[in-house]
Simulated assay, not measured.
Amino acid sequence: MAIMPGLLPPSRETWETACTLFKFFPVITAFQWVLDWYPQGKTSTESRFNISGKWGWATMESAGFMTLLYTMFTLPKELGLDSLPWGNWTMAGCFVIHYIYRAIISPLFLNPSMSPMHPLVWILAFTFQMFNGISIAGYLAGYGPTSDHDWAGRYWSMEIGLVMWAWGLLGNMFHEDDLREIRRAADRTQRREAEKQGKPAQSVDKVYMIPKNGLFQYVLYAHYLCEWIEWAGWWMIGGWNCIPARTFLVNEVATMLPRAVQGKRWYEKKFGKDKVGNRKAVIPGLV
Rank of each mutant, 00 (worst) to 15 (best):
L140E: 04
I210H: 01
E46F: 09
R192H: 08
Y143F: 15
E16D: 13
W122H: 13
H175V: 12
S203P: 02
F248A: 02
I100K: 05
E61Y: 11
S83V: 03
W122P: 08
M91I: 14
G6V: 00
S115W: 03
D205T: 12
P119C: 03
W151D: 12
W240V: 15
L108W: 06
Y267K: 08
L79T: 11
M256Y: 03
N251E: 05
P5F: 02
T127D: 00
V204E: 09
T90Y: 02
W167H: 12
V96P: 05
A141W: 03
F31Y: 15
W156G: 04
P26A: 10
S44A: 15
M158A: 11
T146D: 05
W15I: 05
E176M: 10
M60D: 03
E252C: 10
I160K: 04
S106E: 10
W33P: 02
G263L: 02
Y224I: 03
F25E: 13
S115L: 06
E46L: 07
P5N: 06
S157V: 09
F31K: 12
C19L: 15
M1C: 06
T90I: 11
R188F: 06
R48F: 12
I210W: 01
V276S: 05
E268K: 09
G263T: 01
N172E: 04
G263S: 01
K196R: 15
A58M: 14
I229F: 14
L170M: 14
R192E: 14
L75T: 09
P10D: 06
I100T: 13
L68H: 07
K196F: 08
G168H: 06
R12P: 01
P76R: 01
G277M: 01
H98A: 05
E78I: 10
F248W: 10
M1Y: 09
